[in-house]
Simulated assay, not measured.
Amino acid sequence: MSRVVVFDEFGGPEVLRVMDAPVVEPAAGEVRVRIEAFAVNPLDALMRSGRSPAPVPLPHARLGVEGTGVVEAMGADVAGLSVGAPVVLAAVPDAHVRGSYAEHVTLPARQVIPRPAGLGIAEAAAVWVAFSTAYGALVEKAGMRPGDHVVVTAASGAVGRAAVQVANRVGAVPLAVTRHAANADGLLDAGAVVVVAMDRENVVAAVRRHTGGTGADVVLDLVGGPGQADLARAVRPGGTVLAAGFLDPRPARVPTSPVPTTALPVVAYRSFEHTLDPAVVRRMAVFLDDGLREGALRPVVGEVFTLDDVVQAHRHLEKGLHGGRKIVVTP
């Protein structure tokens, strides 16, 4: 048997419970991974509370789109992996069925990658979602180039910090947007060239000032909601606004100032459009390995909980006590 976190109704962290479930043998093309650690992401809280962008069937729904562990068993027709190999989960699109909040998970072999060298278990559990989302949005989707001015909202969060590092790695100029000036020093340490604190200055005016009046080339909006219209005004003609987050559940509003819609496309981005593409995952893995080896990329881990304390881990997330650092749970 394997211990698995499930929930039978939508609600607060208290709906989560740990139960015993049969260990699933891998079919052809699948591997079973013994999970050593998994990370808690905002998407997990949305799924648990019933606010997920995709429907979550109940009861016995699972959680978890990120984790690391060791290959424990393999089905037929699996190449490039071996029993005992340390891996990272690269995609769990059906987290309500195969979520990583468990001692074991069985999934297609194409959905795991070798664990990057030099990472501890907690870091390996927390590295993939943030950096694959940032890389996929900025490099694969927006075509970010050296010298581009890139605005990152919710920059003090895990994906935001990863996006700042990815932009630096490519040679772009990251402008980090955060709600509070108290976050500025941490973002500058993470590599932001400019930090725009919303409690002190207007985002559009600040971006225009720091780009010589031209506007940003790319905006990675990890918040959503009505503020997205203002971000569109901070982009140069021909630039791109990437809508990649849903921290603000309110609908976006239409910009009040005249903006040519053909010049400022708002492009929706969801990471699974790339993390389910083996060719893109290979590029992501090489980019991540190189950046980690050279010290240009690094996940930031906060509290580490045990599986029995998964409810407390979710409360920690919802209270904002993690300070943008990834929360990790070890089975």
Results as ranks from 00 to 15, higher is better:
163 A>G: 06
262 T>E: 12
222 L>D: 02
269 Y>H: 10
41 N>R: 13
197 A>Y: 04
241 V>E: 02
32 R>L: 12
231 L>D: 00
40 V>W: 00
20 D>V: 02
249 P>M: 13
123 E>K: 11
11 G>I: 07
282 R>G: 08
258 P>N: 11
17 R>F: 03
297 L>A: 04
128 W>V: 10
200 R>C: 04
193 V>T: 14
139 V>E: 01
54 A>R: 14
201 E>S: 14
111 Q>A: 06
287 F>M: 09
103 E>F: 09
207 V>F: 03
59 P>I: 14
69 G>M: 09
70 V>E: 14
235 V>Q: 02
270 R>Y: 08
161 R>C: 02
259 V>W: 03
287 F>Q: 08
143 G>C: 06
52 S>E: 08
260 P>E: 07
325 R>T: 01
137 A>V: 06
138 L>Q: 03
56 V>D: 04
168 N>A: 01
20 D>S: 13
272 F>C: 00
179 R>D: 02
117 A>N: 06
68 T>V: 15
27 A>M: 07
177 V>T: 05
133 T>D: 02
253 R>A: 13
85 A>L: 13
303 E>T: 13
212 G>H: 11
259 V>K: 05
228 Q>I: 03
25 E>M: 12
325 R>E: 02
305 F>C: 10
142 A>K: 02
171 G>E: 05
123 E>P: 12
33 V>F: 05
230 D>K: 07
64 G>E: 03
229 A>C: 05
95 A>N: 05
38 F>L: 03
224 G>S: 05
198 M>A: 15
129 V>F: 03
68 T>A: 15
89 L>V: 15
227 G>Y: 02
237 P>I: 06
238 G>D: 14
320 G>I: 11
113 I>V: 15
211 T>Q: 09
52 S>I: 10
55 P>N: 13
19 M>S: 07
264 L>F: 09
146 P>S: 10
55 P>A: 13
183 N>C: 04
212 G>A: 12
243 A>W: 02
67 G>M: 06
53 P>M: 07
276 L>T: 15
277 D>M: 02
192 A>V: 03
100 S>G: 06
231 L>G: 04
70 V>T: 15
262 T>R: 13
195 V>I: 04
273 E>G: 01
149 H>I: 00
311 V>E: 11
168 N>E: 06
225 G>H: 08
231 L>Q: 03
116 P>W: 02
298 R>D: 04
257 S>L: 14
232 A>E: 13
95 A>G: 09
46 L>D: 10
27 A>T: 07
181 A>F: 03
73 A>H: 09
13 P>W: 03
10 F>P: 01
